[in-house]
Amino acid sequence: MVAGVVVLLVALPLITLPLALALGVRHLRRYLLAESHGVGEVLADLRQGVLGSLLVGLVTLLLGTALALDVALGTAGVLPGGRVVVVAGWVGLAVLGTVLVVAARAWSPATGWRAALRAVPQELGTDPVGACYVAVAVGFVALLTWQLPPLVLPGLGLLVFASLAVPERLLARG
């Protein structure tokens, strides 16, 4: 629940959503590893990462808005080939959400977003089933939030938890 609060509060301006997810992942990872995981650590990460995250947040916001607009216009029947546009828009939103969550898992203040985004293709390529799990988690949180907006708080926390749990299943197999 605390991870959901961290993500929700930092993501309120929308442009800071990637940073918010990364902070939630780092907070929950520290908690699971029994490291210091208080507000001070979250604020330190926030201070170190806010400037470097603005470009990633802006690109994410613009892409998400364009894809959502395509879905809305395709559903309304305004665009020719609307069904294809709707399907492509939903697939694009799923891919965008999955890439965002996987990159947020790889982000750290020391390496930044460039290294995190470079790690995404390798992570998705080595574990395509895990990528599907993350995509389902993104879709579930979106559906949950659409149906009942107050559930965004636990939903974001569950998304952060899922992003950490998916790679752990490979480690458990050995």
Rank of each mutant, 00 (worst) to 15 (best):
L9C: 10
V10R: 04
L12E: 08
L12K: 03
L14N: 12
A20E: 11
A20H: 11
L23W: 04
G24D: 05
A34K: 14
L43D: 00
L46P: 03
Q48A: 15
G49T: 10
L51T: 14
G52N: 10
L58I: 07
T65H: 03
L67T: 04
L69D: 13
A72H: 13
G74T: 06
T75W: 13
A76N: 06
A76V: 06
G77K: 12
G81K: 01
G81P: 04
V85W: 01
A88I: 02
A88D: 09
W90E: 05
W90N: 05
V95W: 03
L100I: 08
A103I: 10
R105H: 06
A106Q: 15
A110N: 08
T111Y: 14
G112M: 04
W113K: 00
A116R: 02
L117V: 01
V120I: 08
P121L: 00
D127W: 11
P128G: 05
V134K: 01
V134W: 01
A135G: 00
V138T: 02
L148T: 14
L151K: 06
V152R: 11
P154R: 08
L159D: 02
V160K: 05
F161N: 03
A162F: 06
S163G: 11
L164R: 09
A165D: 10
L171K: 12
R173D: 13
